[in-house]
């Protein structure tokens, strides 16, 4: 039995080796080379000593944090009320539906909405306070980025809330907890795993957003993704681009560690049970 199982593992292992491990090693290797292909620490020294890159990293981190907070604030109540509605499947479908549309198309749609002659400004003019400059501002960047990330936050939280045993909530009420206490002591702690998964799913991609920074932010918002694109496409300094890539990966690892589920062991038990079935 064990032999066949390890045999079936081969494609997965090969996949991971080829498309996950090898690229990571290549990026790490590239980050230690200069444009002539020689081994050097120069890229890391440049990164560490230039305020441009430090500021950019802080920018990326700050915007990713803002996007995560905004999506979380919107998503948690949404997911909570979603789990209480009838036709949950329909609502869920409507939330997932926008993710089927290409990211670039959605961004272009926002250009149409937010531009000087766009629908939003037409409405603002109609009520007498327009037209306003909406595009190319931090807030429009935040709006579009959050809009795009929201489904990825709602889904894990929704799943966690649905899995919550209603008996626990009832018990909490029976024992005299107020609504707020029930929420803060029972519901929220028990759905924390969903929140953490959501944060991972939103924060990590947000760190390296780059198309939206240009299309909606008009390059007035500069993140590490912009720098990577520039180093690979314009200056062709792949070493420096890879260095920034490595730093992004390290940032992501830190986020993963911080948001990792402490009850991992419990989960593994469940997984093992499933496998033996």
């Amino acid at each position: 039995m064990k032999k066949t199982r390890s045999f079936f593992m081969v494609p997965y292992l090969a996949w991971i080796l080829l498309f996950v491990i090898t690229p990571l090693i290549l990026i790490l290797y590239q980050s230690f080379t200069n444009s002539a292909g020689q081994f050097t620490f120069q890229n890391y020294v440049t990164y560490g000593t230039s305020w441009v890159y430090l500021k950019m990293s802080l920018n990326s981190f700050w915007y990713a944090l803002l996007i995560t907070v905004v999506t979380l604030l919107i998503s948690y109540p949404t997911a909570y009320f979603l789990s209480k509605t009838k036709r949950q499947q329909l609502w869920l479908l409507l939330i997932i539906l926008p993710t089927w549309i290409n990211l670039l198309l959605k961004t272009y749609a926002f250009i149409g909405l937010l531009s000087q002659t766009g629908s939003v400004n037409q409405f603002l003019t109609f009520i007498g306070i327009g037209p306003q400059q909406l595009l190319f501002s931090n807030s429009s960047f935040l709006l579009v980025a959050s809009y795009i990330e929201i489904p990825f936050m709602i889904l894990p939280i929704y799943n966690a809330i649905v899995q919550l045993d209603p008996a626990l909530v009832n018990a909490s009420r029976d024992l005299g907890a107020t609504n707020f206490q029930t929420f803060s002591k029972v519901i929220f702690p028990l759905t924390l795993s969903g929140v953490k998964a959501g944060i991972q799913a939103v924060f990590i991609p947000s760190l390296s957003l780059f198309m939206i920074t240009r299309l909606i932010g008009g390059n007035r918002v500069i993140t590490l993704g912009t720098a990577i694109e520039e180093h690979f496409m314009t200056t062709m300094n792949w070493g420096m681009g890879s260095t920034i890539g490595v730093i992004l990966i390290v940032m992501m690892f830190i986020i993963m560690l911080l948001t990792n589920d402490r009850k991992k062991k419990h989960r593994e038990v469940i997984v093992d049970e499933k496998e033996t079935l």
Binding site: I111, F136, R214, L215, G218, N219, R220
Partner: peptide
């Protein structure tokens, strides 16, 4: 400067 953009400049 309002924005630093690429091809979208045409549209804008």
């Amino acid at each position: 400067v309002k924005a630093v953009v690429a091809d979208e400049i045409k549209l804008y």
